[in-house]
């Protein structure tokens, strides 16, 4: 009792600050002028960030690069598109179907890749994405190469009234809520038994084995819970764009997912969100033209991976350590701690 007392005001303060920041974040579109571009840009950032968190969970806690998350992204988009166009069902139904189907797909892909590690894992997940892309591209029942048009506005019945998300302004609260839910989920996951065990499996497999951890089960579980996150982003994207086609498998989204995660740094809660924001803002507001954007994106990605594998936060840490080393005398210790962080 007495021990926990001094912490209480601090955690209260923390909760208040977090709540205030969430409140401010919700009104960001208005703070940026309230134009339709502000709404659509921020909705897109929120949506793509959710998409990236699925990859982040696998990359940060299993240390595996999944190149197959475009499959889950597309599952969300196609389920929302096909069910709302052909069956006329509301957003809750399509969201539930999205979760169900993406979990099933992830379980299958997870079982197939259970024995694979690193390079082979990436290759197999990529192959899954290529195969699914070809099927979606050639199968007329899901729209073929033209895709599906005429997706109606998102309808979410809430008992006494139905929330309709047609315009960017109306979709922003939903994208924001989905992002908050995702952040909450990932934050809980980091502290959960599964999250900490996954990190141990990733960082020290020998220790995990000696403690009797079933590594395959942990890997499968993490992969499966990552899928509905990315899939729900695809679900909302279908309603935002009102068109779904095989372009959802394109490298554009895959590169976005991977870059957003590694840019800021792994295992940082807000990392993928900040990474996505930087990328989208650069593309939309500070664009240098399609060719140059790709050149610069590739250069930045290569530079980050080569010089600061821990991402931009790693660079910030590195600077801080340097500064500390200059002011202190025992530089060796600090240098070592930086190296540990990098690894």
């Amino acid at each position: 009792m007495t021990d926990s007392l001094p912490h209480r005001p601090l955690s209260m303060l923390r909760a208040v600050v977090v709540a205030a920041l969430i409140g401010v974040a919700f009104f960001l579109p208005q703070l940026f002028g309230g134009s339709s571009v502000a709404y659509s840009t921020l909705t897109t950032i929120a949506l793509f960030a959710v998409m990236c968190y699925g990859v982040d969970v696998v990359l940060s806690y299993l240390g595996e690069v999944s190149l197959g998350h475009t499959v889950f992204w597309a599952i969300g988009g196609y389920v929302a598109a096909l069910m709302s166009v052909h069956l006329g069902v509301n957003g809750w139904v399509t969201a539930l179907a999205t979760i169900g189907l993406s979990v099933a797909a992830a379980t299958f892909l997870g079982l197939v890749t259970l024995r694979t590690r690193e390079f082979v894992f990436s290759l197999v997940t990529y192959a899954a994405a290529v195969v699914t892309h070809e099927i979606a591209f050639n199968w007329d029942a899901v729209g073929g190469s033209d895709g599906t048009v005429g997706i109606p506005a998102l309808k979410l019945p809430l008992g006494f009234f139905t929330y309709v998300g047609g315009t960017q302004e109306e979709l922003w609260p939903i994208a924001f809520a989905l992002l908050l839910l995702t952040l909450f989920f990932v934050a809980r996951f980091r502290r959960s038994r599964l999250g900490t065990t996954a990190l141990m499996v990733h960082m020290n497999p020998a220790l995990a084995t000696s403690l009797g951890v079933d590594q395959r089960r942990v890997r499968l579980a993490v992969f499966v819970i990552s899928a509905p996150i990315t899939a729900l982003a695809g679900w909302l994207y279908a309603y935002q764009r009102a068109y779904v086609g095989p372009d959802m498998f394109e490298a554009y989204f895959l590169v976005m997912m991977l870059t957003a995660v590694v840019l800021v740094g792994r295992r940082i809660l807000l990392g993928p969100l900040l990474g996505t924001a930087v990328l989208i803002i650069q593309q939309n507001l500070l664009s240098l033209g399609g060719d140059w954007n790709k050149v610069i994106l590739g250069f930045v990605l290569a530079a980050v991976l080569i010089f600061w594998p821990a991402g931009l936060m790693g660079l910030v840490d590195h600077m801080r350590q340097r500064w500390l080393r200059k002011t202190r005398t025992n530089g060796r210790e600090n240098k070592r701690s930086y190296m540990e962080e990098v690894q």
């Binding site: 339709s36 960017q168 764009r241 939309n284 399609g290």
Partner: peptide, 27 residues
């Protein structure tokens, strides 16, 4: 890229264009 096209369409809407002439790729 369809996703980029959507961003550009939103930009034209914000600029309040009177007509948009578009489309090389069907998707």
């Amino acid at each position: 890229t369809p996703a980029v096209g959507v961003s550009r369409a939103n930009e034209l809407i914000a600029e309040k264009v009177d007509v948009a002439i578009e489309g090389w790729n069907s998707p």
